[in-house]
Protein backbone atom coordinates (compact mmCIF):
# COMPACT_ATOMS: atom_id res chain seq x y z
CA UNK A 1 0.00 0.00 0.00
CA UNK A 2 2.78 2.41 1.03
CA UNK A 3 6.27 1.80 -0.29
CA UNK A 4 9.21 4.00 0.66
CA UNK A 5 12.50 3.43 -1.15
CA UNK A 6 15.82 5.11 -0.45
CA UNK A 7 14.11 8.23 0.91
CA UNK A 8 16.41 11.10 1.83
CA UNK A 9 15.14 14.48 2.99
CA UNK A 10 16.60 17.71 4.30
CA UNK A 11 15.26 20.49 6.46
CA UNK A 12 16.95 23.86 6.08
CA UNK A 13 19.88 22.21 4.29
CA UNK A 14 20.41 19.60 7.00
CA UNK A 15 19.86 15.98 6.00
CA UNK A 16 17.38 14.45 8.45
CA UNK A 17 16.26 11.33 6.59
CA UNK A 18 19.28 9.47 5.30
CA UNK A 19 17.90 6.63 3.21
CA UNK A 20 14.67 5.02 4.39
CA UNK A 21 13.25 1.78 3.00
CA UNK A 22 9.88 0.72 4.34
CA UNK A 23 6.84 -1.07 3.03
CA UNK A 24 3.49 -1.18 4.79
CA UNK A 25 0.94 -3.49 3.16
CA UNK A 26 -2.82 -2.96 3.50
CA UNK A 27 -4.21 -4.38 6.71
CA UNK A 28 -0.98 -3.95 8.69
CA UNK A 29 0.02 -1.57 11.43
CA UNK A 30 3.68 -0.67 11.57
CA UNK A 31 5.32 1.26 14.37
CA UNK A 32 8.25 3.61 14.01
CA UNK A 33 10.15 4.05 17.24
CA UNK A 34 13.18 6.11 17.89
CA UNK A 35 14.84 8.67 20.13
CA UNK A 36 14.23 12.41 19.84
CA UNK A 37 15.75 13.94 16.74
CA UNK A 38 15.93 10.66 14.86
CA UNK A 39 13.67 11.95 12.05
CA UNK A 40 10.36 10.33 13.08
CA UNK A 41 8.21 13.44 12.76
CA UNK A 42 10.09 14.51 9.63
CA UNK A 43 9.07 11.24 8.00
CA UNK A 44 5.42 11.97 8.81
CA UNK A 45 5.63 15.51 7.42
CA UNK A 46 7.44 14.41 4.27
CA UNK A 47 4.74 11.82 3.61
CA UNK A 48 1.99 14.41 4.18
CA UNK A 49 3.73 16.95 1.93
CA UNK A 50 4.63 19.77 4.25
CA UNK A 51 6.55 22.68 2.73
CA UNK A 52 10.13 23.17 3.81
CA UNK A 53 10.98 19.47 3.74
CA UNK A 54 13.12 18.85 0.70
CA UNK A 55 13.25 15.33 -0.67
CA UNK A 56 16.74 14.83 -2.11
CA UNK A 57 16.56 11.18 -3.11
CA UNK A 58 14.27 8.17 -3.21
CA UNK A 59 10.62 7.57 -3.93
CA UNK A 60 7.32 6.94 -2.18
CA UNK A 61 4.58 4.97 -3.88
CA UNK A 62 1.11 5.10 -2.37
CA UNK A 63 -1.58 2.84 -3.83
CA UNK A 64 0.40 2.77 -7.06
CA UNK A 65 0.78 6.57 -7.29
CA UNK A 66 3.87 8.73 -6.95
CA UNK A 67 3.08 10.30 -3.59
CA UNK A 68 5.87 12.87 -3.65
CA UNK A 69 4.52 14.45 -6.85
CA UNK A 70 1.20 15.25 -5.17
CA UNK A 71 0.01 18.37 -3.31
CA UNK A 72 -0.92 17.87 0.38
CA UNK A 73 -4.65 18.01 -0.46
CA UNK A 74 -4.20 15.47 -3.26
CA UNK A 75 -2.50 13.11 -0.84
CA UNK A 76 -5.42 13.49 1.55
CA UNK A 77 -7.88 12.89 -1.28
CA UNK A 78 -5.92 9.78 -2.25
CA UNK A 79 -6.48 8.47 1.28
CA UNK A 80 -3.46 9.55 3.31
CA UNK A 81 -3.99 11.06 6.76
CA UNK A 82 -1.48 12.47 9.24
CA UNK A 83 -2.59 12.85 12.86
CA UNK A 84 -0.38 15.72 14.02
CA UNK A 85 1.83 15.57 17.06
CA UNK A 86 0.92 19.20 17.68
CA UNK A 87 -2.53 19.82 16.21
CA UNK A 88 -2.82 23.35 14.86
CA UNK A 89 -5.20 25.86 16.43
CA UNK A 90 -7.44 27.67 13.96
CA UNK A 91 -9.06 30.68 15.69
CA UNK A 92 -12.24 31.75 13.93
CA UNK A 93 -12.73 28.40 12.17
CA UNK A 94 -15.59 26.40 13.69
CA UNK A 95 -14.71 22.78 14.32
CA UNK A 96 -17.91 21.37 12.80
CA UNK A 97 -17.55 23.48 9.66
CA UNK A 98 -13.91 22.52 9.35
CA UNK A 99 -14.71 18.81 9.66
CA UNK A 100 -17.51 19.08 7.13
CA UNK A 101 -15.42 21.07 4.65
CA UNK A 102 -12.63 18.52 4.94
CA UNK A 103 -15.01 15.61 4.48
CA UNK A 104 -16.73 17.21 1.52
CA UNK A 105 -13.40 18.07 -0.11
CA UNK A 106 -12.33 14.45 0.18
CA UNK A 107 -15.76 13.20 -0.98
CA UNK A 108 -15.60 15.53 -3.99
CA UNK A 109 -12.20 14.16 -4.89
CA UNK A 110 -13.55 10.62 -4.60
CA UNK A 111 -16.53 11.48 -6.80
CA UNK A 112 -18.99 11.07 -3.94
CA UNK A 113 -21.85 13.49 -3.22
CA UNK A 114 -21.24 16.17 -0.58
CA UNK A 115 -23.08 16.05 2.74
CA UNK A 116 -25.24 18.90 3.95
CA UNK A 117 -25.11 20.16 7.52
CA UNK A 118 -27.87 17.81 8.72
CA UNK A 119 -26.43 14.70 7.11
CA UNK A 120 -23.03 15.60 8.45
CA UNK A 121 -24.28 16.10 11.99
CA UNK A 122 -25.90 12.68 11.91
CA UNK A 123 -22.63 11.10 10.82
CA UNK A 124 -20.47 12.94 13.31
CA UNK A 125 -22.62 12.51 16.44
CA UNK A 126 -21.91 8.82 17.02
CA UNK A 127 -18.21 9.27 16.40
CA UNK A 128 -17.98 12.18 18.82
CA UNK A 129 -19.57 10.07 21.54
CA UNK A 130 -17.35 7.05 20.88
CA UNK A 131 -14.25 9.22 21.42
CA UNK A 132 -15.55 10.58 24.70
CA UNK A 133 -15.95 14.04 23.19
CA UNK A 134 -18.85 16.44 23.60
CA UNK A 135 -20.88 18.06 20.85
CA UNK A 136 -19.92 21.36 22.42
CA UNK A 137 -16.40 20.72 21.10
CA UNK A 138 -17.80 20.83 17.57
CA UNK A 139 -19.05 24.36 18.14
CA UNK A 140 -15.69 25.70 19.29
CA UNK A 141 -12.93 26.94 17.01
CA UNK A 142 -10.64 24.13 15.83
CA UNK A 143 -8.35 23.11 18.72
CA UNK A 144 -8.63 26.57 20.34
CA UNK A 145 -8.82 26.20 24.09
CA UNK A 146 -8.65 22.41 23.78
CA UNK A 147 -6.57 20.51 26.32
CA UNK A 148 -3.74 18.35 24.99
CA UNK A 149 -5.96 15.28 25.24
CA UNK A 150 -8.88 17.00 23.52
CA UNK A 151 -6.64 18.01 20.63
CA UNK A 152 -5.50 14.43 20.15
CA UNK A 153 -9.07 13.17 20.25
CA UNK A 154 -10.01 15.79 17.72
CA UNK A 155 -7.31 14.37 15.42
CA UNK A 156 -8.72 10.87 15.78
CA UNK A 157 -12.22 12.24 15.21
CA UNK A 158 -11.05 13.74 11.91
CA UNK A 159 -9.54 10.40 11.02
CA UNK A 160 -12.75 8.57 11.87
CA UNK A 161 -14.78 10.97 9.73
CA UNK A 162 -12.45 11.06 6.73
CA UNK A 163 -11.93 7.26 6.79
CA UNK A 164 -8.53 7.43 5.10
CA UNK A 165 -6.95 4.35 3.51
CA UNK A 166 -3.71 5.02 5.35
CA UNK A 167 -3.16 6.68 8.73
CA UNK A 168 0.06 8.14 10.08
CA UNK A 169 -0.11 8.80 13.82
CA UNK A 170 2.67 11.13 14.97
CA UNK A 171 3.27 10.80 18.73
CA UNK A 172 -0.45 10.54 19.32
CA UNK A 173 0.26 9.32 22.86
CA UNK A 174 2.23 12.39 23.96
CA UNK A 175 0.40 14.48 26.49
CA UNK A 176 -2.29 11.87 27.16
CA UNK A 177 -3.10 10.37 30.55
CA UNK A 178 -3.81 6.67 30.64
CA UNK A 179 -7.60 7.00 30.34
CA UNK A 180 -7.35 9.31 27.37
CA UNK A 181 -4.75 7.05 25.84
CA UNK A 182 -7.13 4.09 26.06
CA UNK A 183 -9.95 6.04 24.43
CA UNK A 184 -7.70 7.24 21.63
CA UNK A 185 -6.28 3.73 21.12
CA UNK A 186 -9.80 2.30 20.95
CA UNK A 187 -10.64 4.91 18.33
CA UNK A 188 -7.61 3.88 16.31
CA UNK A 189 -8.23 0.17 16.73
CA UNK A 190 -11.81 0.62 15.55
CA UNK A 191 -10.35 1.84 12.26
CA UNK A 192 -8.12 -1.18 11.78
CA UNK A 193 -9.28 -3.16 8.79
CA UNK A 194 -7.87 -5.42 6.07
CA UNK A 195 -8.09 -2.52 3.61
CA UNK A 196 -6.31 0.05 5.78
CA UNK A 197 -2.66 0.55 6.61
CA UNK A 198 -1.21 2.48 9.54
CA UNK A 199 2.11 3.90 10.58
CA UNK A 200 2.34 4.67 14.30
CA UNK A 201 5.20 6.98 15.24
CA UNK A 202 6.09 6.96 18.91
CA UNK A 203 8.92 7.48 21.33
CA UNK A 204 7.55 5.15 23.98
CA UNK A 205 6.33 1.58 23.93
CA UNK A 206 3.29 2.51 26.07
CA UNK A 207 1.01 3.27 23.10
CA UNK A 208 1.92 -0.02 21.49
CA UNK A 209 0.41 -1.93 24.43
CA UNK A 210 -2.92 -0.60 23.22
CA UNK A 211 -2.35 -0.43 19.48
CA UNK A 212 -0.47 -3.65 18.89
CA UNK A 213 1.61 -3.35 15.72
CA UNK A 214 2.40 -6.05 13.20
CA UNK A 215 5.93 -4.72 12.73
CA UNK A 216 8.21 -2.39 14.66
CA UNK A 217 10.99 -0.37 13.04
CA UNK A 218 13.63 1.54 14.92
CA UNK A 219 14.65 4.87 13.42
CA UNK A 220 17.98 6.29 14.53
CA UNK A 221 19.90 9.07 12.82
CA UNK A 222 17.56 9.13 9.85
CA UNK A 223 17.85 5.42 9.07
CA UNK A 224 15.93 2.32 10.06
CA UNK A 225 18.48 0.38 12.05
CA UNK A 226 16.38 -2.53 13.21
CA UNK A 227 13.02 -4.11 12.40
CA UNK A 228 11.10 -6.83 14.15
CA UNK A 229 7.79 -8.00 15.60
CA UNK A 230 5.86 -6.35 18.44
CA UNK A 231 8.29 -7.82 20.98
CA UNK A 232 10.96 -5.42 19.71
CA UNK A 233 9.07 -2.56 21.32
CA UNK A 234 9.37 -4.16 24.76
CA UNK A 235 13.05 -4.84 24.27
CA UNK A 236 13.64 -1.19 23.46
CA UNK A 237 11.66 -0.10 26.46
CA UNK A 238 13.93 -2.23 28.65
CA UNK A 239 17.24 -1.37 27.00
CA UNK A 240 16.67 2.15 25.75
CA UNK A 241 17.99 3.58 22.51
CA UNK A 242 21.53 4.14 23.76
CA UNK A 243 23.10 1.09 22.21
CA UNK A 244 21.46 1.62 18.85
CA UNK A 245 22.40 5.29 18.84
CA UNK A 246 26.01 4.40 19.53
CA UNK A 247 25.97 1.93 16.66
CA UNK A 248 24.46 4.49 14.28
Amino acid sequence: MLKIEGLKASVEGKEVLRGIDLEVPAGEVHAIMGPNGSGKSTLGYVLAGREGYEVTAGSVTFRGQDLLAMEPEERAAAGLFLAFQYPVELPGVGNANFLRQALNAVRRARGEPELDAMQFLKLVRGKVKALGMTEEMLKRAVNVGFSGGEKKRNEILQMAILEPAFCILDETDSGLDIDALKIVAEGVNALRSPERGMLVITHYQRLLDHIVPDRVHVLVGGRIVQSGGPELARELEAKGYGELQAAA
Partner: peptide, 10 residues
Protein backbone atom coordinates in the same frame (compact mmCIF):
# COMPACT_ATOMS: atom_id res chain seq x y z
CA UNK B 1 -0.81 23.07 5.67
CA UNK B 2 -3.09 21.66 8.37
CA UNK B 3 -6.17 22.46 6.28
CA UNK B 4 -4.63 21.12 3.08
CA UNK B 5 -3.52 17.94 4.83
CA UNK B 6 -7.22 17.34 5.49
CA UNK B 7 -7.99 17.44 1.78
CA UNK B 8 -9.06 21.08 1.53
CA UNK B 9 -7.65 22.61 -1.69
CA UNK B 10 -5.23 25.50 -1.26
Amino acid sequence: FYLRSRGIPE
